[in-house]
């Protein structure tokens, strides 16, 4: 039975991801600032952990190692946003968004990679957003942080590829209607739809996929 570590597990996509992995027979280690609820019937841990706090992450992974020994899957689904024009944005808010997205992924990957040794087809999936590909007034922090998530994903894929660890990103379309064009499919992404793409990328069925991004946006960007 594979163990999946999922951050941002209280959020909509994180919770849907926990449900999807539990449904596929994984043990779970759920991390978020407040402890998430384990899906009904799921085996595992739910820990209160700020994924941008290095000491908290170290403590959480010590608990995960003590409980499971190894873990084959890490899903980073924690997100953050701060909307403000660049001319009015405080650096503290910018830093917080960076820390809670790509910074958190750096911290969790650092601790998760050693736990993946000896597991069968280990995989990391990082959640990103179409915001990293599009113009947006007041969305600079989110756009920059989520684009950084993709770049971090691709770099890490090269770093841990020789260990057999695959690393990919899922770019999710907007969950709420914005002012712009609607996705081709005429609706917004459901959290479970993003979760199923994450589950598939983390599975053995995606055994030759690494260093790339799967776009789950209903056709909003079409190659942007």
């Amino acid at each position: 039975m594979r163990t999946a570590i999922i951050t941002g597990a209280v959020g909509d996509i994180g919770a849907a991801t926990a449900d999807a992995f539990a449904g596929a027979g994984h043990r779970l280690a759920l991390l978020d600032r407040t402890a998430a609820a384990l899906p009904t019937g799921a085996e595992g841990l739910a820990l209160a952990c700020d994924p941008a706090d290095p000491e908290a992450v170290a403590a959480a992974f010590a608990a995960i190692a003590a409980r499971f020994g190894v873990a084959a899957v890490l899903v980073n689904a924690a997100d953050a946003d701060h909307r403000a024009p660049v001319t009015a944005m405080r650096i503290a808010d910018w830093d917080r968004v960076m820390d809670e997205t790509v910074g958190a992924m750096f911290l969790t990957a650092k601790h998760a990679i050693p736990l993946m040794a000896g597991t069968d087809d280990p995989a990391i999936v990082n959640l990103a957003s179409v915001a990293g590909h599009l113009a947006s007034a007041g969305g600079a922090a989110l756009a920059a942080s989520t684009a950084a998530v993709e770049s971090f994903t691709w770099a890490l894929a090269g770093e841990v590829g020789p260990q057999g660890i695959r690393v990919n990103a899922v770019v999710a379309g907007p969950a709420t209607p914005g002012g712009g064009t609607a996705p081709l499919l005429g609706r917004m992404a459901g959290p479970d739809e993003v979760a199923r793409a994450i589950l598939w990328l983390a599975s053995r069925r995606a055994s030759f996929i690494t260093g790339t991004t799967l776009v789950v946006d209903g056709g909003l960007t079409r190659g942007h």
Partner: peptide, 26 residues
């Protein structure tokens, strides 16, 4: 990967390209 894109698991995936390239592009 083809079967994934055909399946209901990919029901919000359209207009996109899925690399099955073992990291060739990077």
């Amino acid at each position: 990967a083809i079967l994934f894109l055909l399946s209901d698991d990919a029901r919000f995936v359209t207009g996109t390209e899925l690399f099955v390239d073992g990291g060739f592009m990077r």
